[in-house]
Design a protein around this nucleic acid. Structure first.
Lengths: 110, 110
DNA sequence: GAGGTTGTTCGACGGATGTCGAACATGGGT
DNA sequence: ACCCATGTTCGACATCCGTCGAACAACCTC
């Protein structure tokens, strides 16, 4: 307590999108669970991690969110015990115009 | 010998693009060697398999070309002992408008 | 037909990846 | 203080994937 005020966090690794190889971005999108997460995020706004219930365990979900984050696809805000995730759509659309749209437009179950 | 004339080929598995899950298409593109091949093919026209010299063995090259073909990204024409590969760009652009352009526009080494 | 060319297939191997349960960390509530 | 809720991290495990050399298959040319 006292005045060391500061919500110690932990430097959430969020790379510059242009530092990430295209292949890494594509690889991040090339998984069913992660694609479902991205589809959800594409609705806009932020979502707590727990929002994503896609038939995998907490551990696995956490893993996938990490992959997305480290591929530069998402940004995470820490608030209390929750973490709020959002899509880095603007940056994505600027660096890879058309990519996200094309992927999202694809039929979900094909 | 005799008349059983017929250039037996072998049914080269080339799926309908819409039968291929998006994740498979993305996975096919999410490899450095394959992306180099796709970049080369994107120049247009057909190329014999041997054209692609990207520092991998014959076996590996063959493997990658198979992955691309089975992901619906390429079409292969058999001619004698050679095989000519070309990009299925039209179909790709129709089903995933913008995807290929975005990927190809990305810096080669990032 | 013998030999060369082109490409595929077959193990084998090592490294990456998806998955889980269990343990841990952190913060909110009562 | 205790407990609960939310997430992450840590092995562990199975599977997939990229890679290679060697063997094979098909074809062309002499």
């Amino acid at each position: 307590m006292s005045n060391m005020g500061y919500a110690g966090h932990m430097e959430l690794h969020e790379p510059e999108l242009r530092e990430v190889p295209v292949t890494a971005v594509l690889a991040a999108l090339a998984d069913d669970v992660r694609l479902q997460i991205v589809r959800a995020l594409a609705q806009g706004g932020e979502y707590a991690c727990g929002t994503f219930e896609f038939g995998v365990s907490k551990a696995t979900r956490s893993h996938h969110l990490k992959v997305l984050r480290e591929a530069g696809l998402t940004r995470t805000r820490v608030a209390g015990t929750s973490r709020y995730v959002r899509l880095r759509r603007d940056e994505l659309d600027r660096l890879y115009p058309g990519l996200l749209d094309a992927v999202l437009a694809a039929p979900a179950r094909a």
